[in-house]
Amino acid sequence: MTDVAVKTARPSPLALTGWDRLKTNRSWLAFWFMLPAAAFLILFLAYPLGLGVWLSFTDAKIGRSGVFIGVENYEWLWDDSVFWLSVFNTLLYTGVASAVKFAVGLYLALLLNENLPFKAMLRAIVLIPFIVPTVLSAIAFWWIYDAQFSIVSWSLRHLGLISGNIDFLGDIWNARWSVIFANIWRGVPFVAITLLAGLQTVSPSLYEAAIIDGASSWQIFRYITYPLLTPIIAVVMTFSVLFTFTDFQLIWVLTRGGPVNATQLMATLSYQRAILGGQLGEGAAISTAMIPFLLAAILISWFGLQRRKWQQGESND
């Protein structure tokens, strides 16, 4: 259809200049349309991605391009207890935070899906933590977690629940739970609102039928809501896991990886080693070591989706 229309607009084959070719040939046109986006993504995304992997095999330092040293950086990291601690921290951080974000986010989405007064306003308010820049809300958390003047310690003390102030960011496990809590706080609105968007497409007649059949509210959730929501859950949780795993801002503001590397994530460790320590090669090796984890997360959710589709017997999408 397109081609026919374009051909009739053409004056004659003889007067075909380069400009005409450019205007009418779809492939050429597509090339020009794709050019700006492709240029950005190749120059500043694909090339650095490759360069990062290459750097991890060199001994580059800031201001000095390195020479190829094979897997020496990785061997060095293999024996580095701080690196393994950061892997442990990252997995703990991602695992706990994502699980809680999913549970609370789904719960909040179910609550918001009810018939409520001021529904639109409530839903808009829920999203605010997601809108405010992470660093700025992290600073508020920093103040809330202050060792001496924490409002949480004060309230608990006045309720008679604790006798002394809690050292939120100074103690190893306290610091871990504190940063995980701040991350959950930041992530719940995203999960809740996207799941809510999925929930609203579930037809109410399914629920009505289930109630008539005498299903309990848990059964309704388990056998109607959850299966219908699975595809969107898979996508949302992939995003959530990816961005939690590579988190940097929150940790950097709250603890900078401390106390004694208790909250050091792979991203913060690579920043410390590469930019503050100047060891670009080693930092790049740490970042590259994150890639297999990310790929695993993407593949798991991808195959989860495929299986789902296969079960539902949909073939045309």
Partner: peptide, 16 residues
């Protein structure tokens, strides 16, 4: 490309 996080790109990007 959307799934590539900034935290694995910033070191090579700094040199670029």
């Amino acid at each position: 490309a959307y799934l590539v996080p900034p935290s694995i790109l910033f070191i090579p990007l700094a040199s670029v």
